[in-house]
Structure formats: C-alpha cells, structure tokens
Design a protein around this nucleic acid. Structure first.
Lengths: 138, 138
DNA sequence: TCATTCACAGACTTATCGTATCTATAATAT
DNA sequence: ATATTATAGATACGATAAGTCTGTGAATGA
C-alpha cells in the first residue's frame, strides 16, 4: 500500500510553485523540465490540482500555472487528497449488524495522520531551500 | 490508495481467534465459513500471519490456527504490517542532494498513525462483543 | 487576422498488483 | 493406511497505475 507516484510529482510541483510565486505563471514545460518528468503526464496532476482549487491555470502564450490561494493555506493534505481522492484508507467489506469496530479503529488512526498532514503547509518547507542558485529544486 | 481487502480479512480473522482462544485450533474451513470468504484465499493471509509470528499453525487432522503470543500483545499494526508489508506510505522518487523534506513530513505523519495502530490491540475489541450467541462475529 | 503558445480532454497502451482458484505436497491424528 | 489439515506454487483474471498520443480551445503577440 503506497501513495501513487503522481502524488510525489504533485507535491514537488507544488513546492516549486510555492517557492517561486512569480507574477508570471509557470508552464508545464518548465515544471516538467525542472522535475525531470514527462510533460503530458505531469499536466494531468496539475489539472487535478486546478480542479481541487489549489492552483489557477492561464491558457495561451505565456500561460501556465500559479497559486490560487494564499500559499500559507495550502497543506500537504490538500495536495494529497487532490490526487489520491478522499476515500478512507480502510473500508470493511463485511456487513455487520452495527458499525464495524475494526474500521473505527483504523479510521481513527488515519484521522491522526490526516490531522498532521493538514497542519503541515507546503510553505513550511520553503524556508529551508536556498533561494540563490534558483536552478535545481529537486 | 487503500489497504487491500486481504488486510480486512486478516483483521477479522484475528478478531475471531482472539475472541475464541480455545485449546483446539480453528481450521481455515471454519474461519472461512464464519467470515463468508473463500478458504483458499483466506489461507494465504493466515500463512502470512504465521510467518509474522502472530499465530501458530497445526497440521493434520483437528489442526488449524491458534494464537502464538499473549493476545494482549497483538496490535492492529502487527496484523496490518504482516499483510501489507512494512514499506513506507510515501517514497520520493527524485534524487535530492540531501534527504527529501517532503518525504520527511509524510513519514512523520505516517508515524503518528502507526503509533495509534500499535497501541490499539485486537483484544481491545473483544469486550464489546457478546459472547453468548457465539455464531456470528462479522 | 493569423500563427504561436499554452492548457485541457479523451482515447489508448502497457505494466503492475490485487484477487482468486486449482493442484500438489507435507504433516498429523485416528 | 487413510482422512484431514496447512503450505507452496502455478496460473488466470480484473482493476488500477503509469504513461503516450492526438485533437481542441483559449489567449497572446505580430
């Protein structure tokens, strides 16, 4: 059981966008180049982030993506759920008389993790990244 | 991203074994019947639980499975890891200069969940289950 | 107006993994 | 010995992840 690689891409792309925050939108081409992944595949992740309301897209020449919200409002959980969806980690397949106790325990544990991921913002990492070289983020 | 159904089976099977704890081992046939799942598939999960050291198997007639450790020592985490493995939820696929900060955050959150799953024992649920009818556990 | 540059959507392919079954083998009780 | 049980391995099927390709539409700049 693992988060998909798409989540990995999305988190790193978001980190880049948060670290930059230029007026000019960042194109998929540039983003894909920085991360060293395929443009076409990465664009699928970015489209999901747009639909989740995390970033904003600009069509046409000089277009691309930039943050929608305040960067301090974007948590790890936001990005992860935008890609992975919001279904719970565990769902009991048996039909009990009442609620499944096992499911309750696992759901409770998952909630703990989600709480941490919600409190952690992407922007929290930016302070640790050297601004100068501006070339390699990964 | 989800835990596999196999984990669901394993957790319910363990709950049954913990709730029973007879001298006589419980066969796959009985266990599968109680849970309403396939014998052959369920036996794979049980074999994993054996290899993880959670339960003990007895071959031959009147054989089956019974708990190995004290039932209070068996946590949700033990069962889940026996089936799902112990690899982390998230692994960064980029090669950074130093450790990936994103991975550290997610790993930290996962650790929170694991802590909860480790503290919760399967036996904790048994108190809530009526002993009398003895028929339906699911 | 026209061409260029970009995001976006959908169809499609490929690989991997979860789910499940079947068969054969080894161990044990009666 | 024979029936009963766990165990291992091979196999099949389906779903999902990973990735590519192509066309469409929107915005920009010349």
């Amino acid at each position: 059981m693992k988060y998909s690689q798409a989540t990995d891409y999305a988190l790193h792309a978001m980190l880049y966008l948060v670290a930059e925050t230029p007026d000019k939108p960042v194109s998929v081409q540039l983003l894909a180049e920085k991360l060293g992944v395929s443009q076409t595949y990465l664009s699928k992740m970015l489209t999901k982030l747009v639909k989740a309301g995390l970033i904003h897209s600009v069509s046409g020449a000089n277009g691309g993506y930039k943050l929608k919200r305040n960067q301090d409002d974007i948590s790890f959980l936001d990005v992860i759920q935008a890609i992975e969806g919001t279904t719970s980690l565990f769902e009991c397949s048996f039909h009990h008389d009442s609620a499944c106790l096992i499911q309750q325990v696992v759901a409770d544990a998952e909630q703990q993790m989600m709480q941490t991921l919600k409190s952690k913002k992407i922007a929290d990492l930016v302070a640790h990244i050297p601004k100068q070289p501006h070339e390699r983020l990964t």
